[in-house]
Design a protein around this nucleic acid. Structure first.
Lengths: 123, 123
DNA sequence: CTAAGTGTATTAAGCTACTTAATACACTTA
DNA sequence: TAAGTGTATTAAGTAGCTTAATACACTTAG
C-alpha cells in the first residue's frame, strides 16, 4: 500500500499520515474503502502497531478516516475533509509565497511556474 | 535583536536561524554588521551559548555570516546567499504549489492570491 | 457459542535529538 | 596583559519517537 523512506528525517507516523493522505486526496482510495488493520499494516511496514495507530488517529482527527468499533477504519467521504484540506493548503501556500517574494522571486517568475504546474489541467 | 516563541515546537537553534535569516534577507542587518557574540546573544535570549553557536554555524554554512577568528561573526555580502536562497525558495514554492493543486486549489484562485501578495510591490 | 480479528489503552524500556553546563584553547584587541 | 571572540569537548538532563508486551471490548465468520 505504501513504502517508507528511511532517508526521511520525520517520525514514521507522520510519514504514514502524509502518504495515506495523498492516496485519499488523490482518489486512489475510494470512500468507505476498508483500511488495513493497525496490526497488518504494522507487519507490512515492519513497524509497531502503536505507530500505525497514531497515524490513523491523526487521519481520523483530520477527517480522512472514520472508525467502526470492532470492524476497522474506513476512508471517510470527501465532504469530511475537502474544505479543511483546501483551507490548510491555501494558508500554507500564502506563507511560502510571501517568503518567496521576500527572497527576491518576482510575480512574473511565479506566474510562469504556476502555468507550468497547471499545464493541461482542467481546473 | 530577536524574540523567541515558546509555542514554536521547532528546536531553538532552528528558530534563531530562521529569525536571523529573515533579518538579513529583509535588509535589517547590513553587510559586515557585527553580530552579537554567542555568549551575549545567549544571555539575551536566556539560552546556552552552544545553542547560539549551532545557529551561527548553520547561518555561516548557508552563506549568511562569515567569521573572523578572535573578532566575531559578521553579516556576509548579499552575493554570498542571494542565489542559493532564491533557488531553495523556488523549489519549496513549487512543491507547495503542486500540493495546493492536488488539494483542489485552482489556477485562478492562486493567481488571485498572488496578485494580492504582490500588490503594490515593484518586482 | 467460540475463535479470530478489529480498535483502543496502558506501562515500561530504549533510542535519538535538543539543550544545558562546565571547561579549555587559540585568536584579536584595547 | 586582560578581556572578549569563536571553537571544541565531555557529561548530564529532557522530551519525543518507537518498540514491546499486555489487556479489554467489540464484531464477525464458523
Amino acid at each position: 500500500m505504501i513504502v517508507l523512506d528511511y532517508r526521511d528525517k520525520r517520525p514514521i507516523y507522520e510519514q504514514v499520515v502524509d502518504k495515506l493522505e495523498r492516496l485519499i486526496v488523490g482518489g486512489a482510495l475510494e470512500q468507505d474503502f476498508k483500511m488495513p488493520s493497525v496490526r497488518s499494516l504494522g507487519m507490512e511496514l515492519s513497524v509497531n502497531p502503536n505507530t500505525i495507530q497514531r497515524a490513523y488517529n491523526q487521519l481520523e482527527q483530520e477527517g480522512y478516516l472514520y472508525t467502526v468499533s470492532g470492524r476497522g477504519s474506513f476512508v471517510a467521504p470527501e465532504s469530511e475533509w475537502r474544505d479543511g484540506k483546501k483551507h490548510r493548503m491555501l494558508e500554507e501556500w500564502k506563507l511560502v509565497t510571501q517568503s518567496a517574494r521576500e527572497a527576491g522571486l518576482t510575480r512574473e517568475e511565479l506566474v510562469r511556474e504556476l502555468e507550468g504546474i497547471f499545464e493541461g489541467v482542467k481546473s
